[in-house]
Amino acid sequence: MRITIFRRLMADEFGSLRAETLSKDHVLSSLGGRTVDEALAAGVPAKEIWHEVCEAFDVPAERR
């Protein structure tokens, strides 16, 4: 998954402002105690990050 697609999915699901805030501030233990932005910078695949975000925020299966 490309990062641009990942960012679009985040904005579609959470709204642009909340997606941006979530990406830089919300620490996910499933990403090694990193935020979305930190995980992306560390090279974690965007698809894996999207999966973890969906799990953490109970995104319905049809929108995953």
Rank of each mutant, 00 (worst) to 15 (best):
30 S>W: 09
3 I>C: 01
62 E>S: 05
60 P>Y: 07
46 A>Y: 11
55 E>N: 15
57 F>H: 13
1 M>I: 14
63 R>P: 03
64 R>C: 09
35 T>D: 09
45 P>C: 10
5 I>R: 08
38 E>S: 04
43 G>A: 09
13 E>K: 06
41 A>M: 10
32 G>H: 13
34 R>P: 05
56 A>C: 13
59 V>I: 14
62 E>Y: 11
56 A>Q: 08
59 V>D: 01
25 D>L: 04
32 G>F: 12
45 P>F: 14
32 G>A: 10
35 T>E: 07
43 G>Y: 13
29 S>P: 09
15 G>Q: 03
28 L>C: 05
23 S>R: 02
17 L>Y: 03
41 A>W: 09
34 R>F: 06
20 E>W: 08
21 T>L: 12
7 R>W: 02
12 D>Y: 08
2 R>E: 05
11 A>F: 00
22 L>F: 10
20 E>R: 10
15 G>E: 03
18 R>S: 05
57 F>W: 14
47 K>C: 13
22 L>C: 05
12 D>M: 07
35 T>I: 06
43 G>T: 09
30 S>N: 12
38 E>L: 03
36 V>D: 01
12 D>Q: 08
29 S>E: 15
43 G>D: 10
31 L>G: 00
62 E>F: 11
21 T>D: 06
60 P>W: 11
52 E>I: 02
42 A>K: 09
24 K>R: 11
51 H>A: 07
29 S>I: 15
62 E>A: 04
50 W>A: 09
37 D>S: 08
33 G>Y: 15
45 P>A: 15
51 H>L: 08
18 R>A: 10
29 S>C: 14
11 A>K: 00
45 P>R: 15
19 A>W: 01
61 A>K: 08
62 E>K: 06
52 E>L: 03
19 A>S: 07
41 A>V: 06
4 T>L: 13
8 R>Q: 05
18 R>C: 04
33 G>S: 07
40 L>P: 06
31 L>A: 03
36 V>C: 01
60 P>Q: 09
57 F>R: 12
64 R>W: 13
61 A>V: 08
45 P>D: 13
64 R>A: 10
25 D>A: 11
24 K>S: 08
30 S>A: 14
33 G>A: 09
49 I>P: 01
9 L>A: 00
50 W>H: 14
14 F>Y: 07
32 G>P: 04
7 R>S: 00
23 S>G: 03
61 A>G: 03
38 E>W: 07
23 S>Y: 02
8 R>W: 02
19 A>V: 01
22 L>E: 03
5 I>N: 10
2 R>F: 04
11 A>I: 00
29 S>T: 15
42 A>T: 07
8 R>P: 00
42 A>Q: 06
51 H>Y: 09
18 R>W: 06
48 E>H: 09
31 L>M: 11
37 D>C: 02
54 C>Y: 04
13 E>C: 10
62 E>C: 04
46 A>V: 13
23 S>H: 01
37 D>H: 08
27 V>M: 04
39 A>K: 03
27 V>P: 00
41 A>T: 07
64 R>N: 14
44 V>S: 08
38 E>I: 04
61 A>Q: 06
37 D>F: 02
5 I>T: 12
48 E>L: 11
49 I>V: 13
61 A>I: 06
16 S>L: 12
25 D>N: 07
59 V>Y: 03
4 T>A: 14
47 K>R: 15
48 E>I: 11
21 T>C: 08
27 V>A: 02
52 E>K: 14
4 T>P: 04
27 V>S: 04
6 F>A: 00
18 R>K: 06
15 G>L: 01
28 L>T: 04
